[in-house]
Structure formats: structure tokens, C-alpha cells
Amino acid sequence: MSVMTNLHSSRRVPHPRAVLSLIKPVTWFPPIWAYLCGVISVGVPVWESPGMLVIGMILAGPVVCGMSQAANDWCDRYVDAINEPNRPIPSGAIPGRWGLWIAIAMSVLALGLGSVLGPWGFGATVFGVVAAWIYSAEPFRLKRSGLWGPGLVGLCYEGLPWFTGAAVMAAGAPSWPVITIAALYAIGAHGIMTLNDFKALEGDRQTGIASLPVTLGPERAARVACWVMAVPQVVVIAALILWDRPLHAMAIAVLLAAQFWAMRVLLTDPKGRAPWYNATGVMFYVTGMMVAAFALRHLGG
């Protein structure tokens, strides 16, 4: 079946399973995890605001992240027809403009839920929703840039949820150590997102998306991604030592050493090993995030 035929399916309503596939539950873990890191980092007992905890997790994962996936798949439907034609929109499982309507409806839902989290939570939600559309949609479409695209996604996957969780639980702006550590892990996530771009290499080349794997080639892009992931963690380790948290710093150093091993494996075949690294090396990275969050908790957030 041709790409054009798939994109203009005769189906009138989307299949429920296709809708679930569109919002990609597998992608919800990073922002939920980062939100929990933010909650823990400020040292406020969770049982004081259990509702804020649950609403924030739902907002960060299924709603905002799910919305961003729907918006991205709608805006990328012709690219996906090349890279992954079996995805819900190019395959026709989600017909017509249903992908767009789902993304818009979830944007409205996100803003509604965000308003429950107070001014800081709502402001962060507005930023996340706007960022999702700026990343994917014309005329901005920051995903065309191998610098700004992964940077924005890394910020929204790791830094923004961390900040939101901290701000919601503290009922105010987080302390500068919390913001600093959240920002460092958001910067490092740029490398994770660069590795994620390897799966779309061919379609990006054909459609003019200048991801780092396209502009630098797989080998150089993988090396850049490794440096970008590693350097912020070194700064985190140094900061925790400076703040008299040597045991937490040591734990993150061990996790970074495990990442160095995984990076060596990755660099033997960057394109082929990128999915493997995302399932192994990234787990060491996010574990370090939680260790850092507990270190900040002991600092009083």
C-alpha cells in the first residue's frame, strides 16, 4: 500500500489500540521519574500533598508527554511514512485529522490539570504544552535542528518535570541547588535525545531534518552524545562533594563509570547499538538522578 493511500485511509474513527499507541506509554516513564525526583529533592513529606503527587505524575506522563507524542506524530506523518509506515497515522489506523484533534484535546486537558497545581505548576504546564508544539509544528519546528530540538526535549523530559515536582511540593520556587541539578540533568538528556534520533536517520535525511546523526554522521554524533551525557554528571558529582554529600557523589560516580562501559559498547556500532544503549546506559543515568534528588533532600532542598 502506498504512503498516500495510508495517509488517506477509508477508516472514519481511530481504533482505540491505535490511540494508545499514538500517545506511546513507553515514553511516559522519564518525565514521571523526573517529577518524582523533584518531589523528593525538596524534602517535603509526600503524605502532606498526596493529591498533588498523583495529579503531577498523571500530568507529566500520560497527559503532557502523551500529548507531545500525538502532536509530534501528526506533524511527522510524512516522515514516519518513510521511517516507520506502520505507525498509527501513516498506516491509517488513525484516519483523517484525528491525530491533530487528539493532540489539541490533550493540550486543553493538560492546561486544565495544570491549573490545579497552583501558579508554578500551571506555568510549567503552559511551558511544556507550548514547547511540544514549537518542537513539532511549523513554522518553528525546532526538531529540524540537531542542537535546539534535542535540547528542548531534554529540558521537557528531565528538567521541567523535576522543577515542577519541586515547586508544587514546596508551594514556591525551588532552591538554587535543586534548579542547578535539574538543569544539569536536562542538559545531559540532550545526548540521550540525540541517540534517539538514530532510529529516524533515513527519513530525516530525505525530509531535511538536520539531526546530529544526519549532519555529523552516526560515529561523530554518538561521540558528541556521550560527551554531552557525561560532562553534566561530572559537574553534579563535583557539586555534591562541595555540598558535603560524598556518599551520594560516589554512588553517581559508580553509575557514571557503568555508563562509560556502555558508551564503549555503543561506539563500536553507534547506529546498531543506540537502541541497546537507550535500554541500558540510560537506566544508569536516571538512577543517578534519583540519587542526586535524595542528596538534595538531605540538604533541605
Score class of each variant (00 low, 15 high):
residue 108 V to A: 14
residue 151 G to I: 00
residue 258 A to G: 08
residue 122 F to M: 05
residue 189 A to S: 12
residue 171 A to L: 10
residue 256 L to R: 09
residue 259 Q to T: 10
residue 281 G to E: 13
residue 105 A to E: 01
residue 223 R to A: 09
residue 90 P to K: 09
residue 16 P to Y: 00
residue 178 V to P: 02
residue 5 T to Q: 15
residue 151 G to H: 02
residue 164 T to L: 07
residue 250 M to N: 10
residue 233 Q to M: 05
residue 67 M to N: 03
residue 260 F to Q: 07
residue 221 A to S: 10
residue 108 V to W: 12
residue 207 T to N: 08
residue 222 A to I: 01
residue 32 I to A: 14
residue 15 H to W: 05
residue 5 T to R: 13
residue 36 L to N: 01
residue 217 G to V: 04
residue 247 L to M: 12
residue 104 I to A: 03
residue 44 V to E: 10
residue 118 G to V: 02
residue 186 A to C: 01
residue 188 G to N: 02
residue 186 A to S: 14
residue 79 V to R: 12
residue 202 E to P: 07
residue 224 V to I: 15
residue 78 Y to A: 09
residue 284 F to K: 04
residue 125 T to D: 08
residue 289 M to R: 12
residue 298 H to G: 12
residue 105 A to R: 10
residue 139 P to T: 07
residue 281 G to N: 02
residue 221 A to Q: 08
residue 175 S to T: 14
residue 69 Q to W: 10
residue 187 I to T: 13
residue 140 F to D: 01
residue 79 V to A: 12
residue 96 G to R: 14
residue 146 G to N: 07
residue 279 A to F: 11
residue 193 M to Y: 13
residue 43 G to T: 06
residue 58 I to V: 09
residue 208 G to N: 05
residue 273 R to D: 10
residue 69 Q to N: 15
residue 51 G to Q: 00
residue 266 L to C: 11
residue 281 G to M: 09
residue 122 F to P: 04
residue 293 A to D: 02
residue 59 L to M: 04
residue 243 W to N: 06
residue 281 G to K: 00
residue 105 A to V: 11
residue 245 R to Q: 00
residue 287 T to R: 04
residue 39 V to S: 00
residue 267 L to W: 14
residue 135 Y to N: 01
residue 260 F to W: 11
residue 96 G to Y: 14
residue 23 I to Y: 01
residue 230 A to D: 07
residue 297 R to T: 00
residue 32 I to V: 09
residue 164 T to W: 00
residue 77 R to A: 06
residue 37 C to H: 09
residue 216 L to P: 03
residue 34 A to G: 12
residue 182 A to S: 01
residue 184 L to Y: 04
residue 233 Q to W: 09
residue 217 G to S: 07
residue 120 W to V: 03
residue 255 L to E: 03
residue 244 D to F: 15
residue 51 G to D: 02
residue 188 G to Y: 13
residue 145 S to N: 14
residue 106 M to N: 06
residue 189 A to F: 04
residue 125 T to E: 06
residue 287 T to C: 10
residue 212 L to Y: 13
residue 70 A to P: 05
